[in-house]
Amino acid sequence: RVIAMPSVRKYAREKGVDIRLVQGTGKNGRVLKEDIDAWLA
């Protein structure tokens, strides 16, 4: 299970990103909004 705040999950869904593919850089591997942006870049 991916650790991410609900707002980040929603952001990823809106961008069409599968959050399971994104490498989290936050505490304990948490996926941050910046990680979604970096994955899209």
Results as ranks from 00 to 15, higher is better:
28 N>F: 15
31 V>Y: 02
33 K>V: 10
11 Y>E: 07
1 R>D: 12
21 L>H: 10
21 L>F: 14
22 V>N: 00
25 T>M: 05
26 G>V: 03
2 V>T: 11
38 A>Q: 14
34 E>S: 13
10 K>N: 08
39 W>T: 05
13 R>G: 11
28 N>S: 09
8 V>F: 01
28 N>M: 11
27 K>Y: 12
31 V>F: 01
20 R>K: 14
34 E>L: 11
13 R>I: 13
37 D>L: 06
22 V>D: 00
14 E>M: 15
19 I>H: 03
3 I>N: 10
5 M>I: 09
34 E>A: 12
7 S>K: 12
35 D>H: 02
14 E>D: 14
24 G>M: 02
30 R>N: 08
23 Q>T: 13
21 L>S: 09
15 K>G: 03
27 K>H: 10
37 D>N: 08
18 D>F: 04
12 A>I: 01
12 A>D: 01
38 A>E: 14
25 T>V: 03
21 L>A: 12
25 T>W: 03
33 K>T: 07
19 I>L: 08
34 E>N: 09
28 N>P: 02
5 M>Q: 13
8 V>S: 04
12 A>N: 00
40 L>Q: 05
16 G>Q: 11
39 W>M: 08
6 P>M: 10
28 N>T: 06
25 T>R: 07
27 K>R: 15
31 V>E: 00
21 L>Q: 11
10 K>H: 10
40 L>G: 05
41 A>K: 11
29 G>F: 06
32 L>R: 13
14 E>K: 14
25 T>A: 04
1 R>G: 14
8 V>R: 01
27 K>C: 09
35 D>M: 01
39 W>F: 14
19 I>D: 01
1 R>L: 10
28 N>R: 11
35 D>T: 01
10 K>W: 10
27 K>E: 11
24 G>Y: 02
34 E>I: 13
28 N>V: 06
27 K>Q: 10
31 V>I: 14
4 A>V: 08
36 I>L: 04
5 M>K: 14
29 G>D: 06
34 E>V: 09
32 L>N: 07
6 P>D: 13
17 V>H: 00
11 Y>V: 07
15 K>H: 15
4 A>K: 04
27 K>M: 13
17 V>K: 00
14 E>A: 15
21 L>W: 10
35 D>A: 01
9 R>T: 07
26 G>R: 03
15 K>Q: 13
8 V>N: 03
33 K>Q: 09
2 V>P: 09
16 G>E: 07
21 L>I: 13
5 M>N: 13
39 W>H: 10
17 V>S: 01
18 D>S: 06
19 I>V: 07
37 D>S: 04
39 W>I: 08
9 R>M: 09
10 K>Q: 12
15 K>T: 08
6 P>N: 13
23 Q>L: 15
31 V>L: 06
3 I>Q: 07
26 G>M: 03
25 T>K: 06
31 V>K: 04
3 I>H: 07
40 L>V: 12
25 T>S: 11
41 A>R: 15
36 I>A: 00
30 R>G: 08
2 V>Y: 03
25 T>H: 07
29 G>R: 07
12 A>W: 02
16 G>W: 05
25 T>Q: 05
